[in-house]
């Protein structure tokens, strides 16, 4: 029987199992040890595995990320928590210049199997410097895998696969999702790090989503079905790099209409990228121009009403779909 657990509990379980499985797996990050993590993702692990494997780091994002990468060269499997994706900007040097390039520029000699987990997204009035959505930045760089789990089952299985995979993997979490509940199988399992998942089957339009926006689309699909008799399919793009071209083509070829939702600003983003794939691969399948629903192009404001107005929601998806159908 699958057990209902919260997103953070799925993270704890995955890390606990992987640390038991391999003594070279270790966790590091700010406040992850004694405190157990700002979002509780390492609860109990410090007591179980000690300070050398559950390391409270100084607030030195570029430094400890580089340290994790160096340890991974020797076969260690660091799981690095960057407390907020806004702080990951400070570690971009090591993530992009080292982790993403070490295997390539050494001609395959080195591997850098680090896992970097970090929550992004807009939460509740955290202001401009704590509300970044950086998925588009990470997915644009060769040499890095980027996954965006949308539920506890995915994050559990993806984290476990990421720890064992020899590539550097960035797990893009969401500040608002840590207390989300979902079923996770009791038996150990490993989720793919490539692909996409049809979360809801439909025939009229495909809603491409990832991470928290999958949940917005589920709400939107309910409204579209019950009030407008539009049967929407939801494709969860749980890996942003590499994007699942095959999954995108399959769904568009079935519904002939596509909408992409992204929590970030529109420029150079997930929407633009998925649209480009649709244009390249299945343009003649389309019955309408693809549409993207994105954030407004602003730094996130503190005021709650303005904050809500800046980011998309289920109603924005409904409106965009209705417009696509000329309704």
């Amino acid at each position: 029987m699958p057990q209902e657990i919260m997103f953070w509990e799925a993270l704890v379980r995955a890390q606990d199992e992987e640390m038991t499985n391999d003594p070279l797996v270790f966790c590091m990050g700010e406040d992850i040890g004694v405190v157990g993590g700002t979002y509780k993702a390492t609860t109990g692990l410090y007591d179980k595995y000690g300070p050398e494997r559950v390391m409270d780091t100084p607030i030195s994002e570029n430094g400890y990320t580089g340290l994790g990468i160096g340890a991974s060269y020797l076969g260690c499997r660091p799981i690095i928590e960057i407390m907020s994706v806004n702080f990951a900007w400070l570690a971009m040097d090591q993530i992009f210049n080292t982790a993403a390039k070490a295997h390539y520029m050494s001609g395959g000699q080195l591997k850098a199997p680090v896992v970097i987990r970090s929550p992004g997204g807009t939460a509740h009035q955290l202001g401009a410097q704590h509300s970044a959505r950086m998925e588009k930045v990470f997915m644009g760089v060769a040499g890095l895998r980027v996954v965006t789990p949308s539920n506890p089952k995915q994050v559990y299985g993806m984290l476990k696969s990421a720890v064992r995979c020899d590539d550097p993997v960035f797990i893009y979490e969401h500040e608002l999702m840590y207390n989300m509940k979902g079923a996770v199988p009791e038996d150990e399992f490993f989720h793919p790090l490539e692909g996409s998942e049809v979360t809801r089957r439909g025939k009229d339009v495909t809603l491409f989503a990832y991470n928290i926006s999958v949940h917005w689309c589920l709400q939107a699909a309910e409204i579209l079905a019950s009030q407008y008799q539009i049967d929407a399919e939801i494709v969860d793009l749980y890996t942003l790099s590499p994007l699942d071209r095959k999954g995108i083509i399959e769904s568009v070829s079935k519904t002939h209409r596509a909408l992409i939702i992204e929590e970030a600003e529109p420029a150079v983003g997930v929407g633009a990228e998925v649209m480009a794939i649709i244009n390249e691969e299945c343009f003649y399948e389309l019955d309408a121009a693809p549409v993207r629903v994105s954030a407004v192009n602003v730094p996130i404001p503190y005021n709650h009403s303005l904050e809500k107005a800046a980011i998309p929601n289920a109603n924005d998806v409904v409106k965009a779909v209705l417009k696509m159908f000329g309704r």
Binding site: P23, E52, G66, I69, G70, A71, S72, Y73, C76
Partner: peptide
Amino acid sequence: PLAAGIAKGIQMK
């Protein structure tokens, strides 16, 4: 930091 990390790896092994 990479050097510190390699040293951490040595320590763990």
